[in-house]
Design a protein around this nucleic acid. Structure first.
Lengths: 162, 162
DNA sequence: CATTATCCTTAGGCAAGCGAAAATACAGGG
DNA sequence: CCCTGTATTTTCGCTTGCCTAAGGATAATG
């Protein structure tokens, strides 16, 4: 009865399912996960942010952000605007098309998980939550800034806009 | 009710922690995550498997496996050997160096998770396991094609036939 | 046999990531 | 002012991981 192994297997299934599902979503929606993430962060920040902030939030280099924003601009999802405060900075601004896309393409994991989760009994939800948080704490021990965006978007009540 | 949100947040933390940790580990051990995964699967299968099995297990195309195995061969981690049963098949065999590397670079998830998990009380382990399996089942249902995601521009369905 | 199916590789392409270094802008000290 | 240091972003060149499409061999089957 190797519970440790079984837990690991379950964990991996979770990881893998998410990964595969996101890929599907991306190819179907024409929006890749990374670009979606960028847009979601911009939205969360009130429709405009700097590349620097995006890089920090996503745990990625600025060069990467530049590339992603380039593509998003080319696709008309966001625009770049000079900041008037500090002209070194650029504001990444969500376009109407970008917002529309966000509305239509909610996070894959969310959709699926939420649907199932909310069908559960009250006590089951409580237990799952507690277990997930437990596991997250176990894995997340290092000081990673892990409060990624995709968490709250489709649910509408966003009380955690950090 | 915020339990749904909180669960999603926990899930994200798990995913992100894993991802970042694996990246770190890989760069420290000189093995990339994908290659490490290949080696781990080979090891799990008893030291030898076919590319086909790897592709299936990893949810990836065979061409991708070919590329990964190419690199692993170049690095001396695995070898290719003709199968005598079916000469279309190739066996991917872990080399000594490969095994040594695996020993030195144990699985990220395992390392971290196992350590913590085994410190838990018996009943806690049981609960975690049950919850994880539950979540895995929720996400892992293979009825993805029937999911509501992307009723929008869903032009291309099974891209993932393979 | 001749087909068809299976397994693998080749070739070419795209997305996402990185580090290094350039370009620009602010901020102070002298 | 100018000089230097620092911050922000972009550019460039590269790597990794993944894909599809198109073979090449080798079974399996009619």
């Amino acid at each position: 009865m190797d519970r440790t192994d079984d837990s690991l297997i379950a964990l991996r299934r979770i990881l893998r399912a998410t990964e595969l599902y996101e890929r599907d979503l991306a190819s179907a929606a024409g929006v890749t996960p990374a670009k979606l993430r960028v847009m979601q962060i911009v939205q969360m920040k009130g429709g405009t942010t700097t590349p620097k902030a995006l890089a920090t939030q996503m745990g990625v280099s600025q060069a990467t952000i530049t590339g992603l924003v380039d593509k998003l601009v080319k696709e008309g999802m966001v625009n770049r605007a000079q900041s008037s405060m500090d002209r070194r900075q650029i504001n990444v601004v969500l376009s109407e098309k970008g917002e529309a896309t966000l509305d239509r393409a909610p996070d894959a994991l969310q959709q699926r998980f939420v649907r199932e989760f909310e069908r559960l009994e009250d006590w089951e939800q409580a237990q799952l939550l507690s277990s997930l948080e437990r596991v997250a704490a176990m894995l997340d021990a290092r000081d990673i800034d892990a409060s990624p965006v995709l968490t709250v978007g489709a649910l509408d009540h966003d009380k955690r806009a950090n």
